[in-house]
Amino acid sequence: MTVTSQIDFEEAKSEIGAIAAKSGALVGGVAAADAFMAAPEGRRPSDILPHARSVFVIGGAQPRAGDWQSPNYQHMEVTSTSDRMQTLALKIARTIEDRFSYYAVCVPPGVDQGQQPFMSIAMAADLAGCGSRSLAGPVLHPEYGFMYFGAIITTMPLPADKRLDTPACPAPECVAMYAAENTTPCFGVCPIGSGGCLGGRLEAGHISDRQYDSARCSTRVQNYWVPGFQKLLGATLQEPDAKKQKMMLFSSMFSRTLWSMTYSNVSQGQCSECMRVCPVGLAHRTKQ
């Protein structure tokens, strides 16, 4: 354990960053805990850890380039690697407490009783300069594109990083596409006006308006998961015909939903189509 008065916080940050990188993180950064003013009351770092000073963010565990190439959409559902960042976040929290003697907690990756995140890890990643919010929603790193993030809230006063000077989204290709066709790849694949989730506008190469139907996105991202299960269960319980009810209960939809729930510890992203067509990080998803 290091005596608090002897800690060089810049060095400590580098040490934590090195542990993160060695353990598989592609990116890391720090957001000041008091920078979360755009977050709703009750969902800021100090609402989880009193006297929080910093949020250390890690990112990585991307799907492999080959995962994106599979013609079977179900493949991406069962190869989720997001939990690796959560495991690493736990390791970093332990390091901060054991090595530097400050409180540290991981931001829980699930949702609270209101079905909302305890704290926005996406906002933390954006504030820590690990990426920027995209039209589609996920935080994108300018070089690597889509990745998973974890966040550790601590009372340790680590030096904060700054947000990216140039957002990763929209990519130059998307700006050109929007100018020519009035749409972008993510809007094109999942248009809010035609049964999809996403809409918006670009102006002068920047996001100027954005619409996102989170309820519809949930039917796709949580297709075979808790929301789908609740719907299926409701419909099946209401079926008065016992033979028909058996068909519903044993159906591929019902069975797959139950399987999906059993092998999911926290959550699964069961739709990746807006990210599949995203050009940010394309070089890292392109192999022979």
């Binding site: 954006d126 919010r133 996001i207 308006d209 954005r210 619409q211 996102y212 139907d213 989170s214 309820a215």
Partner: peptide
């Protein structure tokens, strides 16, 4: 639930 210009940036 439907996020119109929700993003912080």
């Amino acid at each position: 639930s439907v996020q119109i210009n929700f993003q912080e940036q």
